[in-house]
Computed example of a mutant assay.
Amino acid sequence: MYTDSHCHITDDSLYNRIDEIMENCFSQNVSNLMVICCKETDFIRACSLKEKYPFIRIAFGWFPGDAKEIAESHFKILEKNIDKIDCIGEIGLDYYWDDSFKEEQKSIFIKQILLANQYQKPIAIHMRSATKDTLDILKEYAQTKILFHCFSGSKETMMECLKLNSYISFAGPITFKNARQAPECIINCPVDHLLTETDSPYLSPVPFRGKQNEPKNVQYVVKKICELKQIEETVLCSQIEKNFYSFFNKN
C-alpha cells in the first residue's frame, strides 16, 4: 500500500477528473493521501472529498509565493476551519522566482507556525532557495511536527532538517537522471523519518516525466528509494505508512 504525503488533487487541473484519479488510487494500492490546499476553493473541495474518502488527510495553508496578497482575514479562515485541518501547509519560504518580498514571506510563515503551535497541528514545509532563513525560523518558532516536502537539498541540509525531528519527503525528481544529490540523501535518511509524495499535478516521475502527475505514480518514487536503500518494497511501504500516521500523532 502506497502513501502520497503531498498532492494537489483539488487543483483545477486535476479536480475535473477526480473520480478517475481516485479510482486509479484504489487500482494502484494508494491507501494514504494528504491533499494540499493553497486556496479556500481547494480546501472546500478537499472537505467534500474527505466525506466520501475518510482516509484522506487535509493540509491547508498560505503559500509563500502569495504572501503579498495574504491579509489578516486569511488567517481567520484558517482558524475558523482548524478542526477540519490535519496539517497546516504548505507553508514556508520561496526566493527562487522573486526574492523582493522576503519579509512578507517570513511574516506569514511565522504567523502560520504560531497558529500550528496553538492548535497542535503539524506543518508541511515548502523551502526553495531559502534554506537558511527557513531553518532559522523553524528553529526559533516551531513546536509541532515538521514535514519537508519534495526535499531537493544536500545531505548536509537534510541532516540539519533532521535535527528538528522532522520528516523528509521525496518526490518524482529523485527518478531523474540529473538528481545528483538525491541518492546520497535517500541512502542517509533514516527510514523512520522518510515519506513519499507526488506533488501532483507537478513533477511526474520517470517514466511519465513531462506528463500530468497524479497520486498513483507515487509507486515509482517508492521503487527508486527501494533501489537506493536496498530494501524490500513491502517493508518500505509499511514503514512509510507508519511514518505518515506518526506525523499526525500529537505525542
Rank of each mutant, 00 (worst) to 15 (best):
P122N: 11
I123Y: 02
I123P: 00
A124C: 12
A124I: 05
A124Q: 11
H126A: 00
H126I: 00
M127L: 08
R128E: 04
S129V: 03
A130E: 02
A130N: 03
D133W: 06
L135D: 00
D136N: 13
D136Y: 06
I137C: 08
K139D: 13
E140T: 12
Y141G: 04
Y141Q: 06
Y141D: 05
A142T: 12
A142V: 08
Q143N: 12
T144D: 03
K145D: 15
K145F: 11
I146C: 05
F148I: 01
H149M: 02
C150I: 04
C150D: 00
F151L: 06
F151N: 00
S152T: 13
S152G: 11
G153K: 03
S154C: 10
K155S: 12
E156N: 07
T157V: 10
M158T: 09
M159C: 08
M159Q: 13
E160W: 05
C161S: 14
C161E: 11
L162I: 07
L162N: 09
L164K: 03
L164N: 10
Y167D: 04
Y167A: 11
Y167K: 14
I168S: 04
I168M: 09
S169V: 02
F170S: 09
G172C: 07
G172H: 04
P173L: 14
P173T: 15
I174H: 01
I174S: 03
T175A: 12
T175G: 05
F176V: 13
K177M: 14
K177F: 15
N178Q: 07
N178S: 15
N178T: 14
N178R: 13
A179E: 04
R180W: 10
Q181L: 14
A182Y: 06
A182D: 08
P183D: 12
E184C: 08
C185W: 05
C185P: 08
C185T: 09
C185I: 07
I186Q: 02
N188C: 10
C189V: 06
V191H: 05
V191F: 02
D192H: 09
H193S: 07
L195V: 08
L195P: 01
